[in-house]
């Protein structure tokens, strides 16, 4: 899929995160955005998810309502168990898939565990599984493997590929970037494309 930003401007207070930004992202399988912290990658992802509105310009090629975003924070509901977190995003007709998604995240047998009892890596994997379970088209993942060991991250990336959905992810990890089909390098603020595949 091709996402096109045309003259997009976004200002937070005095800070111009995007200043007439025009770029085209070809998202195919696992596609990565990388660049220094604070350059505007997260803002770009939030913009694509429809959580931010640009002050100017247009975004084409994406339907925010059909995308699924994994936030930089896990945002798990502290009072719901791991299984319930997955079930909460599934329609009733798909409740039978809960175990399958827990397996996706390598959390078999943890269905009754509350987030407070999960390690940082386990919580991250659960948040990723919940995002993937949500369904829809494009997946927007903000540092999906933060706190996840390299081996598990590789396994999760393989499973994400197997889903056959376009994935746009933010990462700084060389091992993650290596496994992505496309890598866009960004700089900023204001955000600009440094290199495209």
């Amino acid at each position: 899929m091709k996402i096109v930003l045309q003259d997009v401007t976004m200002v937070y207070g005095q800070r111009k995160v995007l200043d007439g930004c025009s770029l085209t992202l070809e998202v195919e399988g696992l596609t990565a955005l990388t660049g220094p912290s604070g350059c505007g990658k997260t803002t770009l992802l939030r913009l694509l998810a429809g959580l931010e509105r640009p002050q100017g310009g247009t975004v084409r090629g994406i339907v925010p309502e059909e995308s699924a975003i994994l936030f930089q924070e896990n945002r798990l509901l502290p009072w719901r168990s791991a299984g319930q977190q997955i079930r909460d995003v599934l329609p009733r007709s798909r409740w039978g898939e809960v175990e399958e998604w827990l397996r996706f995240a390598g959390l078999e047998g943890e269905g009754d565990t509350r987030p407070a009892s999960l390690s940082g890596g386990m919580a991250r994997r659960l948040a990723l599984a919940r995002c993937a379970a949500l369904g829809g088209g494009l997946m927007l993942l903000d540092e999906p493997f933060a706190g996840v060991d390299e081996q598990r991250a590789a396994r999760l990336m393989q499973r994400l590929e197997e889903l056959g959905r376009p994935v746009l992810l933010i990462s700084h990890e060389p091992s993650v970037l290596e496994r992505c089909r496309r890598v866009y390098r960004l700089e900023g603020p204001p955000l600009r494309l440094v290199s495209a595949p």
């Binding site: 959580l51 309502e65 924070e73 945002r75 509901l77 909460d88 949500l134």
Partner: peptide, 20 residues
């Protein structure tokens, strides 16, 4: 942040009330 999650994950009003 949880309310934003509810919006992004397309929870309806009732579900947001019940779960958050």
């Amino acid at each position: 942040q949880l309310l934003e999650l509810a919006r992004a994950y397309r929870f309806g009003r009732w579900k947001t009330l019940r779960l958050i």
